[in-house]
């Protein structure tokens, strides 16, 4: 597969995943602030801006933090690379550029949703944004169903999977950090109805509430929630699951040079650290927030390695006049940047 198109498919994967995740983050907050009347002292919107690296951007363009403006920034603001609209615009442009590699159904699905979104945002008002956010979930879920059902398990699929897996792994710590940032008014509030309500909201936002109840029954304990979201290999939105997808995709893509081999080894080590009981101990020893920072850092390194290995350079065997051959890595030419890659690492 061409390096350029491989990169496009990888981007398509992570843009679709990110679109869904932004909608999920908004949902967490919306759900956490349902009882806004009762707990009016909570600022639920600042943490979300911190987590999506949007604080500066927001202060510059919007001023007062309130639901309407945060929602606008994260859903409809196409100048913000971390908005649903920007992600979908880019995803569609990329899908158009790799149309020959994705199935007709997938292209139609993206294009239809794009037109629907543009109609939704053309009105200016975002009164029904929760409704739209649900549609984003459905769009993303249907997307996964379609690629599962219609795409050959070749390189195109594997690079898309690589994008999905990595972005998913990166998002879980961010969602957990929302809870961390949302400091409770007092230490006594730990275990209070508000605390429990927030954990429930967090689980719901990752479609994890049912999974949690099935595994651990109704009582919500923070340590178990953290375990489910980070370490459970079977839960499809856990960190472990995301990294395993990355590892499986890399194995299927194959290892044709040393960098590719090293990248795979690196991913396997990451996966090993998430397996077994060691990680739970790490989390306790380091404290959740520090552990999440480490995870963020590792994901970032992984993203950089993937870029370097597959998209920035290419392996070439050159033949000189004496018919000697030499295998070297040469830089790929500069790509046209369709989006800001700051969050991609």
């Amino acid at each position: 597969m061409l390096s350029r198109t491989a990169h496009s498919l990888y981007q398509l994967g992570f843009l679709i995943e990110r679109t869904e995740n932004i909608a999920r983050i908004l949902d967490v907050n919306s759900r956490m602030s349902v009882e806004h009347e009762v707990f009016s002292e909570l600022d639920v919107w600042s943490p979300i801006l911190e987590i999506t690296d949007n604080m500066d951007n927001f202060e510059e363009h919007y001023g007062e933090i309130c639901e309407a403006s945060v929602v606008r920034l994260l859903l409809a603001d196409s100048d913000n690379p971390y908005s649903v609209r920007a992600c979908l615009l880019n995803a569609r442009e990329i899908a158009r550029s790799v149309r020959e590699l994705i199935s007709e159904e997938i292209w139609l699905h993206i294009n239809l949703f794009f037109h629907e979104m543009e109609r939704e945002f053309s009105g200016g008002e975002l009164r029904r944004w929760q409704h739209f956010s649900e549609k984003v979930h459905m769009f993303a879920n249907a997307f996964h169903g379609m690629i599962y059902n219609t795409m050959v398990r070749g390189d195109a699929w594997q690079f898309m999977r690589l994008g999905f897996g990595l972005e998913r792994a990166r998002m879980i710590p961010r969602i957990l950090q929302i809870k961390y940032h949302m400091l409770l008014p007092s230490p006594e509030a730990v275990g209070s109805p508000l605390d429990i309500h927030q954990w429930q909201a967090l689980l719901r936002s990752v479609s994890g509430y049912e999974a949690y109840r099935r595994l651990y029954q109704a009582r919500i304990e923070p340590a178990k929630v953290v375990n489910l979201l980070l370490l459970n290999p079977g839960f499809p939105r856990s960190l472990h699951f995301g990294i395993r997808e990355v590892s499986l995709a890399l194995r299927e893509i194959g290892m044709y040079n040393e960098d590719q081999y090293r990248l795979y080894q690196h991913t396997e080590r990451f996966l090993d650290d998430l397996r077994g009981g060691a990680a739970s101990e790490d989390i306790i020893a380091m404290g959740l927030n520090d552990y999440l920072s480490t995870v963020n850092q590792r994901c970032k390194t992984l993203a950089l390695m993937i870029n370097k290995t597959f998209f920035d350079t290419i392996t070439v065997t050159l033949t000189d006049q004496q018919s000697g051959s030499l295998t070297i890595q040469i830089p790929q030419q500069q790509q046209i940047q369709l989006y800001t890659e700051q969050q991609a690492g």
């Binding site: 597969m1 061409l2 390096s3 350029r4 044709y256 597959f310």
Partner: peptide, 23 residues
């Protein structure tokens, strides 16, 4: 394959495309 100029290179008068597995 749908290619752009940047995806291709010529070496020893042979045209190649740059793929994830080499040329």
């Amino acid at each position: 394959q749908l290619v752009q100029g940047q995806d291709l290179l010529v070496n020893n008068d042979i045209l190649y495309m740059k793929s994830t597995r080499g040329i």
